[in-house]
Design a protein around this nucleic acid. Structure first.
Lengths: 135, 135
DNA sequence: AAGAAAGTTGACGTTTGCGTCAAGTTCGAC
DNA sequence: GTCGAACTTGACGCAAACGTCAACTTTCTT
């Protein structure tokens, strides 16, 4: 029941992506749907992989990195070293994400400060504005 | 003393950017240095504007947005409405930055969870590895 | 059987912020 | 006067992740 084949449209709805995206991912070797004639048919495996791809994107992995990770996941042999590599890549990414967050925090703090300043100036201008209108 | 004119190189060193960047900004109408013959000469005003540009970039404003903001700052007339527009654009941006941060936080949390799972699996694989080597 | 709906490939376009030549001018130094 | 350093414009390149045609073929519906 869980291994029905989905057409490209069905995939798109299920995952909220466009056909172009799926074909693009296929070209990048992230997916490898079956073919019935011309038509692509997506298997349970493709769905699992696409799910991982979309997750990876949330973590700001590039598609190329995701491809390498997916390749690692399913080779089966020498699991240890390869899994470890995957794990460490993810760790590195985590560090980057946290650095990004820190920088973002700084930017937000600075911008807020500027805005406080701006709000005061704005109030001042508003007074002048009203004074002018009152004459 | 503060109104000396800087050459492009001096500007680059002062702000840590490349000549290409300064010319690019000029093309985008973010800067408007004087000319002495062919050579660009950057005024105090240019330095102030560049400083704002670089700040704006930290806040993830695009160069185009920054240009609009800079234009607003220096028109002089009808300060109130224009300053208000600037202020509100900045507020909007702040909201976006905070949304970004929230999403980033979620991504970090999720990735950490995955990593915890991964660490367990890794430990398991390591046991198998050692067991295999021990025979 | 005929038309519509869905699928296909291929190729070029978009966005942002510069990098990287290439080829030419100008300037001060010696 | 001539060399080299610094400056100039112009144009193309790049990276990522698709969007957007165009021109077909296939498949479903009636």
């Amino acid at each position: 029941m869980n291994d029905e084949l989905l057409t490209i449209r069905q995939m798109c709805e299920k995952f909220g992506v466009t056909p172009r995206t799926l074909r693009f991912y296929e070209q990048k070797e992230l997916l490898a749907p079956l073919r019935k004639g011309q038509t692509r048919l997506y298997t349970r495996r493709d769905r699992a992989r696409l799910k991982l791809v979309l997750q990876g994107k949330r973590f700001s992995f590039t598609l190329e990195e995701i491809r390498r990770l997916l390749d690692l996941y399913h080779v089966g042999d020498q699991q240890y070293t390869q899994y470890k590599a995957t794990y460490e890549l993810a760790l590195k990414h985590l560090a980057e994400l946290e650095a990004q967050r820190a920088e973002l925090d700084r930017a937000i703090a600075d911008l807020k400060e500027q805005l406080a300043w701006g709000a005061r100036k704005l109030a001042e201008l508003e007074r002048l504005q009203n004074a002018g209108a009152a004459e």
